[in-house]
Design a protein around this nucleic acid. Structure first.
Length: 244
DNA sequence: TTGATGACGGCAG
DNA sequence: CCTGCCGCCATCA
């Protein structure tokens, strides 16, 4: 924090541009994550609604948000924190770092990118948002779509959701057995069952949801293409296929 | 830095 | 089916 002030006195603050669109969840995610890092990394954010400029709307189409720094596209759809760091670093005029501190660029105490920072959480949330009302998916299914996450990470990502974000239908993710996963906090389990019941998801006598009936097939190929998801085909061993 | 801890899942009994 | 045992790996104390 204090380091930022030192640097701020000598260098102008870099400006990042986010091309966005109203009602775009991915845009909101990216802006929220940028807000978390703004002070530490030292940058300002400029937002541009592509729908206000026909030329931009035509250029970006549905492919927002797009993060731009110094006329360079850093990433789109999801924040690539490493790419952003690189870009900010390259744009700085103090390139030399002291020998013996190889991986410590101009930013102090930044540390390595965590899962959340690297933008995998927003990717997971984006997938969960695609689960329609009345349908359910498994942690493993979401992980497979994401491509690089594990089921465990999906659970961790959902556990990290804090109250205000109503846009992620976390209740639609169940464990492999089709039951609501128990959790350390205890609470939340009943809320999840209640929320699913309210959506018309049927539970059997043992508290299980039948995936044949209410299982989600995953996002369509086009959506995955547009959002940069390349799921590895699951082993899908043995018989026991799911219909619908 | 290390170790304990999970909103998981596969597999053996 | 159901249970228990691991492997998993980002977090956190």
């Amino acid at each position: 924090m204090s380091a930022r002030h030192e640097r701020a006195t000598t260098t102008p603050m870099p400006v990042l541009t986010v091309y966005e669109r109203a009602g775009c969840h991915l845009c909101e995610d990216m802006l929220a994550t940028l807000a978390e890092w703004r002070t530490e990394l030292g940058f300002e954010v400029e937002r541009i609604d592509v729908d206000r400029v026909p030329e931009l709307a035509a250029r970006y189409g549905a492919k927002v948000p797009v993060l731009v720094h110094d006329s360079r596209e850093i990433c789109r759809f999801f924040l690539d924190l490493d790419a952003l760091r690189r870009s900010l670093r390259d744009g700085m005029t103090t390139p030399r770092r002291s020998p013996g501190r190889p991986d410590r660029p101009g930013f102090p105490e930044v540390g390595h990118a965590s899962l959340r920072d690297a933008g995998r959480y927003p990717r997971i949330y984006a997938i969960v948002r695609m689960i329609p009302r009345g349908r359910v998916a498994t942690y493993g299914q979401v992980a497979a779509i994401e491509g690089s996450a594990t089921a465990r990470m999906v659970g961790y990502a959902l556990a990290a959701l804090s109250g205000p974000d109503r846009s992620v239908p976390w209740q639609r993710v169940l464990n492999h057995a089709g039951t609501v996963s128990e959790r350390s906090g205890g609470g939340g389990v009943a809320r999840q069952r209640q929320a699913l019941a309210a959506e018309g998801v049927p539970f059997d006598a043992k508290g299980r949801v039948d995936f044949d009936t209410a299982g989600w097939d995953g996002p369509d190929i086009d959506w995955m293409e547009r959002h940069g998801f390349h799921p590895a085909p699951r082993p899908r061993s043995g018989g026991r296929r799911r219909r619908r």
